[in-house]
Write a protein that binds this DNA or RNA. Structure first.
Lengths: 356, 356
DNA sequence: TTGAAAGCGCTACCAG
DNA sequence: CTGGTAGCGCTTTCAA
């Protein structure tokens, strides 16, 4: 049972022989308290290890020092590394985070939630969080569901919301949309430079903005280089290892030759490589690849993954700062540019000495 | 600014021409409301999309339907997969989770927090969470810090606390301590069966319970098989890929031959393999290995990782259920056994056909 | 079935 | 500098 004792400000006031107003002042660092009383109060607080009830506090102050973070799947390194960065900054600013995994589209574990994002939104409003951060999920769909959009509007009508993703009109969210196509161009150019002319694209859920943008960037880059686009070289699936595995199998079954491919992220790259190995296709000798989104372990992979660092950590920092600023009343327009960086390692078969 | 409008129960009552008591009844599914009034109230609630203030609610009801989860690093697959499972069950029971990454011992990213666990504990108490789940961190140290212990005691004096880890006396926590040595025995026996006689142990932070237990199990298993224990074949470090990498380098530099090793988890295994590759030692031909703790991507690795499934998901389910039961007043003693399972894949060089 | 009213624990205003 | 007190928004008796 949760029936453990709870000290209140009244008991502290009693024992310290002062009014609750004075105790409150001491707790909030108000200067208008005599040294003697302050000391007395502090001692009693110490003695009972008293911590003020944040509910009561929040009821008056209208802030809970809590921020809601809504994302699809924390077990995905993309989200977890960002979350860590977000938490670090929240902590410094005194905020705590309510994490909501919507498991949109299913996680790597195949787990699915029974509740949708609207449910979480409602809950966050009820709990009076000071703001909400939305990182992926339904916002990322190329065409956003009407109900979702409505839920998002309602949420953003009630509290500050920052979302990582492309703008959804008729809502009051602040949208931060990093350029994610640029890196693809970098990658394609690099592969071209190495002599590759048949380059495939592997992984990523169809109809999700990031997939869309990258596929488009892929096509544009190809055209820019005077290469033709063959739709059969595009094999989408999802964002996990198993999806890289299946995507490669699909791709190979189409019998269109390719000498290199772009994987939507490191997980997909790993699954892809596994699939190629099972098909006795040598990597990187026969097929080179680059991942569009760098995760943690890539540099320990065999071969070490050449991939694009999209600076998720910086992005995380950016969004939490933006949100906290908005909560604080400073609506500083989020100015930023996170130029992606091609990290050349071994999965394209060369070192080039460019290593950095 | 967070100055968005907030509807309250009063306005709903006004508009519906009933008392706030009636509105409250409607919201809480109390039957003592006439159909007519109920309908009127529901319509107004709908109209304004009213959600009750959980702070005010919690102030009276003494519960916030929020649970605090304290763990070292959510970017570690061990924790994230467990968290997902925990969240799923919390959700069903109506709880939301406050996630606290203590970054104890530093994360894979090298990030460290400025606050310690005691700070989080304090914050969770203030926010009146209904219970706390502690998964790793300082609890896992072989000798627990005095201050930490005191903080833990204070926390558990004030609310229900379930910790995954070995018992720490003088606290009111419920401890759930899965057997983690058993799997090691399985692994060693398997390696022995394959003919290995010089088996090393790689990774894991020294002075952390789980490392300790596994190293001890490793030693016992070796002795059981009539093999001698050579301390030079034990190379500890930490739990990430980079740590597997460094641990192998240390190990090899000692010049004690080994034909197989146990890695503390899949991350370490991956880093280890990379190190061996860099040393031109062939895996699994020259050195076979098994990971003690299976993560997500192991089956896509080259070679596919043979590792031990410790059933973290089940453990997560177990602990959250235990906590929720305690919160609900049922102090059902956590009965369980999670027999680890050796998942044989390729990193020991054979398939054996045992595949399952 | 209904509403009035008493708080939950705290902050902030107002007098003194 | 200090204490009294009016709420914050809600639930829950207690009468009606």
């Amino acid at each position: 049972m949760g029936d453990k004792e709870h000290i209140t400000i009244n008991q502290i006031a009693d024992e310290a022989q002062v009014s609750i107003a004075t105790v409150s002042r001491v707790m909030n660092g108000n200067t208008s308290v005599s040294a003697e009383r302050r000391k007395r109060v502090e001692e009693v607080i110490q003695k009972y290890n008293f911590s003020p009830n944040a509910l009561a506090r929040g009821l008056i102050s209208k802030q809970t020092m809590t921020i809601g973070v809504v994302l699809p799947d924390i077990s995905n390194p993309y989200f977890s590394s960002m979350f860590l960065e977000i938490e670090r900054f929240s902590l410094e600013a005194g905020y705590t985070l309510l994490l909501c995994n919507t498991l949109f589209g299913g996680s790597s574990h195949g787990i699915r939630n029974t509740r949708d994002e609207a449910y979480y939104f409602q809950m966050l409003v009820e709990k009076q969080v000071d703001g909400v951060l939305i990182i992926g999920g339904q916002v990322d769909l190329v065409t956003v569901d009407v109900n979702y959009k409505q839920a998002l509007k309602r949420l953003s009508d009630q509290l500050p919301v920052v979302v990582i993703g492309k703008e959804i009109e008729d809502t009051n969210c602040v949208f931060i949309h990093p350029e994610t196509g640029q890196g693809v161009t970098l990658a394609i150019n690099y592969l071209y430079m190495l002599g590759h002319r048949q380059i495939a694209f592997v992984g990523g859920q169809p109809n999700v903005t990031i997939t869309d943008i990258r596929v488009n960037a892929y096509k544009s880059a190809l055209k820019e280089l005077g290469l033709s686009v063959d739709e059969r070289l595009i094999s989408l699936s999802d964002y996990y290892s198993k999806d890289g595995y299946s995507a490669i199998n699909t791709l190979v079954s189409r019998n269109v030759p390719f000498t290199a491919f772009l994987a939507i992220n490191d997980n997909v790259a790993i699954g892809s490589e596994r699939a190629l190995q099972d098909l006795s296709i040598k990597v990187p000798e026969e097929v080179a690849f680059i991942s569009c989104d760098q995760f943690e372990n890539g540099e320990f992979h065999i071969p070490r993954l050449t991939s694009i660092n999209q600076h998720h950590d910086l992005l995380g920092r950016l969004v939490i700062n933006t949100l906290i600023n908005i909560i604080g009343g400073n609506s500083s327009p989020p100015k930023f540019s996170l130029a992606p960086e091609l990290v050349i390692r071994e999965s394209c078969g060369t070192h080039l000495g460019i290593k950095r």
